[in-house]
């Protein structure tokens, strides 16, 4: 780690600091440590601290914030960010029924990879993924990194509706749709797990820095786990 970082302004009420420019688990861990350290300081006027792949963004109230002090704190946490202070990652096992109506793009991904559908499933489910950030919609975790062979780019035309629990691939990323939404990722399977439920005490299953593993299940297990009103919502081929 070098001793200097550049703090950039994003308008009059946000600052951004980039800790690097590459997609790297160690770098992302330092980003998460930086964001957590800054949050813990409870600096007056700070409204939100957001970690992403390689950057931390702080939203603040310009009428209540000592900008020099905030800039100093952000710089200090960015320079000294130490991933070893992060809590050990929580590990989530996500059961997935791959292929068929639940994973209508699995054969496409197999064609892209030049291997069998089973091989795509094996590759996708043998890897442990890191939650790099959440975004797109509430509770949507960007998981990485998908092996290069099956890292098929997203669809040219997004689907109008992807069901809750759909598991997709977009380049080196994989993710789980938290609720029905339009979506452009290649859908290879579906989980009965609700990664987001607004009515739960803990609405969000994932947080940045967590570890996710996919566990293949058969369709009977998926259907038995889905609510009745969800079972009929497979995206189709």
């Amino acid at each position: 780690m070098t001793g200097s970082v550049e703090v950039r302004t994003a308008g009059d009420s946000a600052l951004v600091v980039e800790l690097g420019t590459e997609l790297d688990p160690g770098l992302n861990a330092r980003v998460i440590a930086c964001a957590a350290g800054l949050r813990d300081e409870r600096i007056r006027g700070v409204r939100d601290v957001i970690s992403s792949y390689a950057a931390v963004t702080v939203c603040y109230d310009p009428l209540r914030t000592d900008l020099d002090a905030l800039t100093e704190a952000l710089t200090r946490h960015a320079v000294s960010a130490d991933a070893s202070v992060n809590a050990p990652p929580r590990v989530h096992e996500v059961p997935v029924c791959y292929g068929g109506a639940n994973g209508p793009d699995l054969e496409l991904v197999a064609g892209f990879a030049g291997c069998s559908a089973d091989e795509v499933v094996r590759r996708h489910s043998e890897t442990s993924y890191r939650v790099y950030l959440l975004g797109f919609v509430p509770g949507f975790a960007y998981l990485g990194r998908v092996g290069d062979r099956i890292a098929m780019p997203r669809r040219r035309t997004p689907r109008m509706r992807v069901p809750a629990g759909a598991v997709g691939i977009a380049g080196g990323q994989t993710g789980i749709y938290p609720y029905p939404t339009p979506g452009g990722w290649q859908l290879i399977g579906r989980t009965p797990l609700r990664v987001f439920d607004a009515a739960r005490d803990e609405p969000f299953l994932f947080a940045p820095g967590d570890t996710v593993r996919f566990l293949p299940i058969d369709e009977a297990t998926l259907l038995a786990s889905l609510d009745e009103d969800e079972a009929g919502t497979a995206p189709g081929a």
């Binding site: 994003a10 308008g11 009420s13 946000a14 951004v16 980039e18 420019t21 590459e22 997609l23 957001i50 992403s52 792949y53 390689a54 950057a55 963004t57 939203c59 950030l133 975004g135 960007y142």
Partner: peptide, 11 residues
Amino acid sequence: EPLSDATPTGT
């Protein structure tokens, strides 16, 4: 394209 990061209101 840069890596995705935060997009505050007004971006």
